[in-house]
Nucleic acid binder design. Structure first.
Ligand code: FES
Ligand code: FES
Lengths: 146, 146
DNA sequence: AAGATTTAAGAGTATTTTATCTTAAATATA
DNA sequence: TATATTTAAGATAAAATACTCTTAAATCTT
């Protein structure tokens, strides 16, 4: 459902949001190299994907020593769907699951009535969930993967 | 979410199920060439994918004139998940949405608690929906795409 | 038996996605 | 000002997926 690029990006955004809460990193740029290393991701792949998030205005970047990226909005204002939309686009939520040209209630495929409902719920989840929510889970649960 | 191979296969299976209801095609083999033509799919791609469904015991195939494929079970006994499992596998339903090695309630990622629920509902839909259900929609609605 | 039809299987090609590399540009710091 | 650090951008490479082709095998029809 999510591309590898999108999965990595979401993980990294959650990581940045979480780190930004700590006094030490408050308002500071965090280097992409550090993020990739800490999360076990490819620095190359992550920086490439981050370029889209920067262009889209979700991240601010800064070059040179002490440079890196930081969130342009508080974690509570950044939804998962914002990241998905930038990296993967909204095709998943707009297109027919059986691959037909268009998807609509008026001209449905034979499983549209069942699928549209599920898809709406997934969309709703990605719209409602913010980086703040993810951070809260990290703080709340033991044994959680970041 | 579904691969192109899987989308095509599901459409084709629904088509076969629907056709099999008609007296003329009752218990007959339906040629893959005809199916692909009628659905606007690639004959090559579809026949390749069908090979998996044949091996998996969802389809029976027969070569030569009047050959083709036919369902091995009544449409009410073939669930969408059966087709998905054969063509795409169950990775989508088993793996972590953020790409972590394993997915479990005991060792979750930071959005597992939200995602696991949605994923369960999608799985449930694919488990509950049979080719018979799709056919009923085709009969029930106008303007439906097959 | 011969020829036509149809799927099976494996090889081959094309496209997309993933991942990496290289060079340039910006900027902090010494 | 020189150097080191860090992202930007575009080119390249590798891997996965999508799609096509060729030959063989099965089997129906004549
Ligand atoms: S038309 Fe197929 S999912 Fe909407
Ligand atoms: S651990 Fe990530 S979805 Fe379950």
């Amino acid at each position: 459902m999510l591309s590898a690029a999108c999965r990595d990006s979401i993980r990294a955004m959650i990581y940045i949001a979480n780190l930004s809460k700590k006094e030490k990193y408050k308002d500071r740029f965090i280097s992409i190299y550090k993020i990739a290393r800490d999360l076990g991701l490819s620095f190359y792949f992550l920086s490439k994907n981050f370029q889209k998030l920067v262009k889209a205005g979700l991240l601010e970047s800064h070059r040179g020593p002490q440079g890196g990226v930081k969130l342009l909005k508080p974690p509570s204002k950044i939804r998962l769907i914002d990241i998905v939309a930038v990296i993967d686009g909204m095709d998943f939520f707009n297109n027919c699951i059986l691959g037909f040209e268009k998807c609509s209630d008026e001209n449905p495929c034979s499983i549209h009535n069942l699928w549209a409902d599920k898809r709406r719920q997934i969309l709703s989840m990605f719209e409602k969930t913010t980086l703040e929510d993810a951070i809260r889970n990290i703080e709340k649960f033991e044994n959680i993967k970041v």
